[in-house]
Simulated scan of single mutants.
Amino acid sequence: MPFFDTQSRDQLRASYIEAWRKRRERLPMQPLEMQIADVIELHPEYQQALQDPDSVLDRDYSPEGGQSNPFLHMGLHLAIRDQLATDRPPGIRSAFDNLVRRMGDAHAAEHELIECLAETLWESQRSGLPPDEHAYLARVTRQR
């Protein structure tokens, strides 16, 4: 999503906060804001924090401290949804549909894809190579 490439961490976080504010206040939204708000709706555990910008804008979420980064998690949901909309890598949509049929829950199936994507991105970062779409899709299809 090129939109996110041009934003600082604070600007990116502010876009989540603003999208959630607009959803709560039933204000007009841009398409990307609607996508963000849809993901936030699926995560009630993050909603209160997004209503208190001072609690999240400057906060560092460290895995060492046992903290999950809600912005990373929601961003991965958005990435998965973009992959599904474009069927990239080819076959991801079909693999996802199979997971949804097996699990009976699209949100849970997205979480399965997020785990696979996160592992693929971690490997890419560690190796210094681009993410391996074939390895990613293989991970996803093993989830069936």
Rank of each mutant, 00 (worst) to 15 (best):
R144F: 11
A14T: 09
H77D: 06
L137S: 02
R144Y: 10
E119N: 08
I17F: 15
E115W: 04
Q35P: 05
Q51Y: 02
S124C: 05
Q7E: 00
Y16F: 15
N98Y: 05
M74E: 08
R142K: 14
Q11H: 05
W122P: 00
Q7C: 07
Y61M: 04
P31C: 06
R101S: 05
D105C: 10
H134G: 02
G128N: 01
L84S: 08
L76S: 09
A85Y: 12
L78H: 02
L121D: 06
Y46L: 00
L121I: 11
A109F: 07
R26C: 02
A79Y: 00
E123V: 13
A19P: 04
S8W: 08
R24K: 15
S94F: 02
L42M: 13
P90F: 06
D105E: 06
W20P: 08
D87R: 07
P70D: 07
R13V: 02
R21V: 04
S94A: 01
N69C: 04
S55G: 02
P131L: 00
Q35R: 12
P44L: 09
D105M: 03
D60R: 07
E133F: 08
A138K: 11
R139C: 06
F3Y: 09
A108Q: 08
R102P: 07
M103F: 15
G91V: 02
I92Q: 00
R102V: 15
L76A: 09
D97E: 10
Q51C: 15
E41Q: 03
H111E: 12
A118D: 13
Q30C: 07
I114Q: 10
V100L: 08
E119G: 10
E115T: 14
G65K: 11
W20M: 12
I17D: 13
W20A: 10
P130E: 00
P131H: 01
G75W: 09
F3N: 01
R23P: 01
A79D: 05
R23W: 15
P90V: 04
I92D: 00
T86A: 12
S55H: 07
G66Y: 08
D10M: 09
I40N: 05
P53K: 03
E64A: 02
H73F: 07
R26N: 14
D105K: 05
L99W: 08
Q48E: 13
Y16H: 07
Y46T: 02
Q48G: 08
W20V: 13
Q30I: 03
Q7L: 10
L113C: 11
Q7F: 01
Q47F: 11
P53C: 12
Q67K: 03
D10F: 04
P131A: 09
G104N: 12
P90S: 08
R81H: 08
A108V: 09
Q83N: 15
H77W: 13
Q47A: 10
R21T: 14
S55L: 06
Q67I: 01
R13S: 04
F4N: 01
I80D: 01
A14K: 14
Q11I: 00
E115L: 13
L117N: 10
Q47M: 05
D52L: 12
P44N: 13
L78Q: 03
K22Q: 15
V56Q: 05
D54Q: 14
I114T: 03
S94M: 00
A135N: 06
S68M: 09
T120W: 03
A85V: 11
H43A: 12
P53F: 08
H134Y: 03
D60Q: 06
E25I: 12
A19I: 10
P53D: 10
E33K: 11
G65Y: 07
D38E: 15
Y61I: 00
N69I: 03
F71A: 08
